[in-house]
Amino acid sequence: MNERDFADLAAGHALNALSDADERAYQEALAGHPQWELHVRRAADAVAAISDTIEPVEPPASVRASLFARISELPQEQPAFAADPLESDAEDFAAAGPAPVDPEADVPRPAASFGWGRRRWFTLAASVAAVLVLGFGAVTVGQLMAPPAAVVALEQIEQAPDARSASTTMADGTVATAHWSPSTGQSVLVTDGMPALASGTTYELWFVRGETPIAAGTFEPDADGKAVAVLDGEMHAGDVIAVTIEPAGGSPDGTPSTEPVVAVATA
């Protein structure tokens, strides 16, 4: 089992959606690879976040039926490392089309071990549907549990041998920390306490190179003013990472409209 497959199992474990066989495989893999514990924490945190932020809703029966039909149409990988003997002799249900679904029926639970193929993904996706209302979108467990790109970039920077950071605290109490790594070519700004903005405005990132500001993308902090934002473009040594308040969508002419509300010197 590779790390990606374990991450999928960790998502299923957090959702209490694994068969007995997959639960055993999950526990054995975790015992053999304790460094994969981070996937367990991520999955648990994601499920907790969902339960904390989504109000319980009773979906109409038609949503459940439509969701199951969409799941049956999703393409699934068939990894070569773990062939499922039941899959090899099974009817090609994808070619035959989705089977009729009784909206009032209980979610089916396979009695036998089902490997890493279509049936495991079906069970996981059905469990996600029990946690929140997905509407009619095709959402996979991997997409749900995947960390944001900015978090991934921050982890890559922190793990790089040339990782560097610099922090500043502004007069209003905002704390901003820039993280960067020349070897990864990435830079990230982490904020805490950014003030809420008026409607129709956004925060915009800049590399200030000498006297020249270079736009590097926009971001929106959460209700606590926290954000992890990747800067677009290449950072140069000595750049100041700045944040201004701009119209929604960013500066219309590519230059700052206000004085910086955050400025982090990296030299």
Score class of each variant (00 low, 15 high):
M1K: 12
R4G: 14
A7G: 12
G12M: 01
G12E: 03
A21W: 06
D22Q: 15
E23C: 05
Y26P: 08
Y26M: 05
Q27Y: 02
R41F: 06
A44V: 12
D45L: 07
D45G: 13
A49Y: 10
E58S: 11
S62F: 07
V63D: 14
Q76M: 11
P79L: 04
F81S: 10
P85G: 10
A95H: 09
D106Q: 13
A111F: 14
A112Q: 15
F114T: 13
W116A: 14
G117E: 12
G117K: 06
R118V: 05
F136G: 12
G137M: 00
A138Q: 15
G142M: 06
Q143D: 13
A149Q: 12
E158D: 12
P161W: 07
S165K: 07
D172W: 02
H179Y: 14
H179N: 11
T184Y: 10
L189S: 07
M194F: 01
P195L: 09
A198E: 12
T202N: 02
F207A: 06
V208S: 03
A215W: 08
G217N: 01
F219T: 04
D222N: 13
D232P: 00
G238Q: 06
D239L: 01
T244M: 00
P247W: 01
A248I: 07
P256E: 11
E259P: 03
P260T: 10
V261E: 06
A263Q: 13
V264M: 08
V264I: 09
V264D: 14
A265M: 08
